[in-house]
């Protein structure tokens, strides 16, 4: 139980760091990287939380998170393909 809690806290701090990365990013790609990392860690976090509270049916939600995170990534990349070129310059400092 203690180990589970410790892992939970570790993942939670990883999430916080990823969030910080997403909020304070040099380029827009760093931001996406942070968001993506946040999403994958969230899925892991939910799986852990399910074990911590003894309700492993949380796992379904973890699956949804992993899936939605990927979908979001693809949508963001697709958006880039559309708006590439004209707006890239101002993003790179």
């Amino acid at each position: 139980m203690l180990v589970l809690s410790a892992t939970c806290i570790a993942i939670l701090s990883v999430m916080a760091l990823a969030l910080a990365r997403a909020l304070k990013a040099d380029t827009v790609y760093d931001r996406i990287l942070g968001v993506n990392m946040f999403g994958t860690k969230t899925a892991l976090f939910i799986a852990l939380m399910g074990f911590l509270s003894g309700r492993p049916d949380f796992l379904d939600i973890a699956i949804v998170y992993a899936l939605i995170n990927f979908l979001g990534m693809i949508a963001v990349l697709r958006f880039f393909e559309y708006t590439a070129g004209d707006e890239n310059q101002e993003q790179e400092k």
Binding site: A6, S13, R21
Partner: peptide, 16 residues
């Protein structure tokens, strides 16, 4: 779990 959490933290430090 603990080694996994350690690697996870390593990565998070790495992105900074």
């Amino acid at each position: 779990l603990i080694v996994g959490a350690f690697f996870s933290l390593t990565g998070a430090v790495g992105i900074f």
